[in-house]
Nucleic acid binder design. Sequence first.
DNA 1: GGTAACTGGGTTTTT
DNA 2: CCCAGTTACC
Length: 671
Amino acid sequence: MFDLPGAWDEGLDDAQLEAATHGDAPLIVLAGAGTGKTRALTSRVAWLMERGVAADRILLLTFTRRAADDMLARASALIGAEPGTRRPRGGTFHAIAHRYVAAYAESLGLPGTFTVLDPGEAADLMDLLRGHHGLARTDVRMPRSATLVEAYSRCINTQRPLREVLAVDFPWCEPHLEEMADLFRAFTDRKRAGALLDFDDLLLYWRALLAHEQLGPHLASQFDHVLVDEYQDVNTLQVDIVRSLRPEGLGLTVVGDDAQAIYEFRGADARHLQDLAETWPDASVVRLERNFRSRQPILDLANAVRPAENNAQLRLHSDRPDGPRPRLVRCHDAPAEARAIADGILESFERGVTLREQAILVRAAHHSDLVEIELSIRRVPYRKFGGLRFLEAAHVKDFVTAARLLDNPHDDIAWFRLLRLHQGIGPARARALVAILHPETDDLLPHWADAVAAAPAAARTTLSATLDGLAVARGRTRPGERAEMVLQVLRPLLMMRYPDAAMRLEDLERLVATAAAVDDLPAWLAELTLDPPRSTGDLAGSPHLDEDYVVISTIHSAKGLEWSVVHLPHVIDGAFPSDMALKSPTGLAEERRLFYVAVTRARDELNLYTPLRMPHHRRARDDRHSFAPASRFLDDGAMAALKVVELNPVRHQIPVVAATAVTVDLTSLWH
DNA sequence: GGTAACTGGGTTTTT
DNA sequence: CCCAGTTACC
């Protein structure tokens, strides 16, 4: 073991080395924040490959596609693999599932041209069906379609019956239990009939493949090693998948930290991590507690807020020299908070900390609204991650759905969306037209004339052009040409629809340019749906790598990342912890873990902000005059680790001049 | 009967 | 900013 060439083990400490060089028995790595678990995992992949495990017999399951790509590239670099040599398989559960479902579509009774629905489209489908089922009643308010999809998804991901899910997580929906059950049955039927798969279906179908008598063992035997990152955030389906992949636990490596479980709302349960030791009594447990990231004063706060009930009982310690204590900045109101953050960023910048080394992490995407304005005014460039994704922008969705129609003309949701873009076609006419277009055969052309005839006179010309254009696009084979043709179809429609169409069309030009470089358009569209670009800049590739900008991110999207200086606004009850989260019994605990994740992103400096006066905030209004800690995260232990800074409210002085000195004169306009 | 345009109220987190 | 509800027009 000591004569290995290469430097894959350079700088690893004992615990990391133990994890990296562990044999084939199941391995559980309990890794506190910032303890170099990515390094350990990467080194393990490198070690395995160096020991002769073929790259394509290693599967790395991560939380985002970027994390997988990152780790695989680093592992290849560690062992000095030639570019172009085989790389391990890696990706998110959903992305890998998509590959298998596509490859085994026939076995699953699916047409080869199925479509992946994003949650928004699943909600659209739910809406469509609700109409058919007389569930659009207005006398008793029904849950919104997004809520319906959430409840449905929770049932699937936790494998619990609807009755139970409603009782625990959606009590206000309980009166609608029967209707919802009916609706959900129709929902699954419709997805089946239309070859539409939502995110949950991908997991369900992959699990079904793995559970099959012959197919399952065959698929599992394709891998010698399966490594799963962020295991505290897996749900029941994912646990089943992992167990089917490694039925004996041999060659299984799992990394996680139950104090960082922040996806309960998505059906994840940190108990899955705790249960592992029982599932595989012979599993080895390695604990990573040495923090390479943060200075000790930041870890003191982290340890104070780290949930006590965590399984691992990890206590982080650092060998990094002392730095400044984290600050709790009490400011007058949210605008003052925004100014304070901008001041802080520019001060650090003056001291030589690049903007890229500084981040503003928020609980909810809109918490950064005021800071964004402040940064714009001061011309500080920033990029925002999380919140609204690029794909969720209406025009991008218009494009993706229209492009999907070329390969799956059964996709009613896509037709519905495309038809509604035409002037004069609303929900009702679109529904009628979908029924006409809805083909029994794969060939659409015979019905097109009927559809045009059925459209209102004002829409006929454009609709006819749209359908002609799609026919042309279908005739093209190269993905780039197909995409270009789809854009040509959309161009006039988007010009009519959006006042800012020019900007939106520019986005789509970029998207089409990217499409020109792929060889499988449907697969590319599915990948785009599963892991959309996190910010508009992502699409442009990275021509501006030297560009410096502050990162604004939701805490969820910041998981696994780190910055030298971190600013945490809105640390105040109602905002963070979010009052929405407090509705569920386990909500506060999850908020606390989220706070722990946020705090441990900082390497050198950490600033928490508490606006004392927050309009529109119930809780904050009550507390306006009190000097209690602003957030219930900040108990005595946490306060002891903090330095409180009182920020005097800075009033902008408004110069007052004589009343007659300022006049408004419009007469020159009327000449 | 259906669409477009406007108004007012509410806003978590994501594969 | 997105949704539901209302109203005026086709």
